[in-house]
Amino acid sequence: MKFFLALLSLIFAVVLADEHDHAAHSDYVVKTNADLLRYRDECVSKLSIPADLVEKYKQWNFPDDEKTPCYLKCILEKFGLYDEEKGFDVHKIHHQLDGDKVDHSDATHGAIENCAKEAAAAGDDACVRAYRGFSCFLKDNIQLVQAGVDKGSK
């Protein structure tokens, strides 16, 4: 009986924490293509990204080179989707992709979570973690990512 009560208390605490966590993300403002362009300019300037790489980024091509991982980290941080200490914010990413009517129990959410976990296991370098997580999700969901930025523009 004590075990059952302890288990029930734990489940209740997790549910409350999840609801509180979700509430903190409900005020996320979906970013637009204009935001992306501004953030791109800021990150390119800050990191001295060469023009040839910028052209690749505009085509949604993110090579695994010396500059790109930190560029993506910069962009994701400006979007509010990634934090060097905490990693990816799965709920905010899902909001960016699907808007305010997001269903955090769907397959997209699961895919974001899986890529966030893969990124967290990528080592100590925050740029590498950002790159790995973004690349993981982009690999199978590029149209959704592109639409997530375009959606906020309309």
Rank of each mutant, 00 (worst) to 15 (best):
K67N: 03
V54M: 04
Q96L: 09
R38S: 12
F62V: 06
H91P: 02
E42I: 07
P63C: 01
C115W: 01
V44C: 06
V90H: 06
E66Y: 12
S48G: 15
Y71S: 12
D100C: 12
L138W: 06
A111S: 10
F79I: 02
R129A: 01
F62I: 01
K86F: 08
C127N: 00
E118W: 06
S135V: 01
I142N: 13
G80S: 09
N61Y: 10
I75S: 05
A120F: 05
D64H: 05
C70R: 14
Y57H: 10
V128R: 07
K101E: 14
T108C: 11
T68V: 04
S45Q: 15
S45Y: 10
D89E: 06
V44Y: 02
G110L: 13
K78N: 15
K56S: 01
V128N: 14
K78S: 13
N141E: 08
K86D: 15
Q59K: 13
V102Q: 08
L72W: 06
F134K: 08
C74E: 09
D140K: 00
S45V: 11
C74G: 04
R38Y: 00
I93M: 15
F62A: 01
D125L: 05
S135M: 02
R129E: 03
A107S: 10
C136Q: 09
C70E: 12
K67H: 11
K46H: 05
W60D: 10
G87Y: 13
D124M: 08
I75R: 01
I112E: 06
E118K: 13
N61P: 01
I75L: 12
A107P: 07
R40P: 05
D41F: 13
L138T: 09
E42L: 07
D65V: 00
S45R: 15
Q96N: 08
F88V: 02
I93W: 10
F134S: 09
K58L: 11
D103F: 00
W60Y: 12
E84R: 04
C115R: 01
T68M: 01
D41K: 12
V44H: 07
